[in-house]
Design a protein around this nucleic acid. Sequence first.
DNA 1: CGTCAATACTTGATACGTCAACTATTGACG
DNA 2: CGTCAATAGTTGACGTATCAAGTATTGACG
Lengths: 158, 158
Amino acid sequence: MKQRISLLQRELSQPKPFVSPAQEGVVALLLTADLLRRRLIEIIEPHGITLQQYNVLRILRGADEGLPTMTIGERMIEQTPGLTRLLDRLEAKDLVHRVRGDDDRRQVRCTISAAGLALLKTLDPAVDAADERLLSPLGEKEQRKLVEMLEAIRSGNS
Amino acid sequence: MKQRISLLQRELSQPKPFVSPAQEGVVALLLTADLLRRRLIEIIEPHGITLQQYNVLRILRGADEGLPTMTIGERMIEQTPGLTRLLDRLEAKDLVHRVRGDDDRRQVRCTISAAGLALLKTLDPAVDAADERLLSPLGEKEQRKLVEMLEAIRSGNS
DNA sequence: CGTCAATACTTGATACGTCAACTATTGACG
DNA sequence: CGTCAATAGTTGACGTATCAAGTATTGACG
């Protein structure tokens, strides 16, 4: 069997071959996600918010009644302390509102503001186009297969 | 055709379905990579180094003669300034050595120390096992397919 | 009803990453 | 050979993330 040198090995200029496809897969996954992240950052940060802030806004857009801080934290993969300050910054830019919960006064209900919605709206076309472009090396059937495999990895490791 | 609600939608508790598999794929990729990253961090950080520092050590292990800072930077996806300080911290822990280059005195040649190699050696079994476990929800053939698809995405977007 | 653990944050200390200057060195060009 | 742009790396300022500890509120239990 001829020794194939993978793209990944060339990218890393590593003399040693990967021991297993699993090892190669993990590295490939991390590198690919980094690439996607950078591409999305290029689109989003010029508009004055970080990718994380953008993600929070999108989550809030999906929840008409707003969400308590911790619920947002569960949906992102972020600790609450970081979120408090991230929300501080979003609030300072008037992209979200926060109000102490009526029923449970420990909670803070966060809602996206009109300005936040407007910002997302201007970003939507570029982000959607980027998503399409980034995954365009795969056919639609492959894209579905990819999503399926990634879901398997996540549900097998949660 | 019956409306399928993907795992991803449930994970995000998003009422709205994804517009396209590409959009879903990008989010899935980012979430999955985050999960892997956290699992690797759980293994590595208790040993006193961060995941990034670990990655640098692995790169240096692969280069017997050491590497200049910028070359490391190219192989990670990190800017030079961050690397300088990351290397400062690794050097403070005596896991790497740095010497001004002889031929080009602007360069700094970084080499992994004996202690660095020893640390990697103690981490290797756990990291290798984690890689296997993390991708174990996929069969080996699927793992190869995944690597191939991720490579396609990267080479289509570099 | 009072106590006390659990919950939902918030704040402070610290670490890390990034951008923008800055220094040292190199290499090309007149 | 001298100048000057390019390169390699460092440093300072800043934004953000994380851990630990603190505050306010809730809910269960005696």
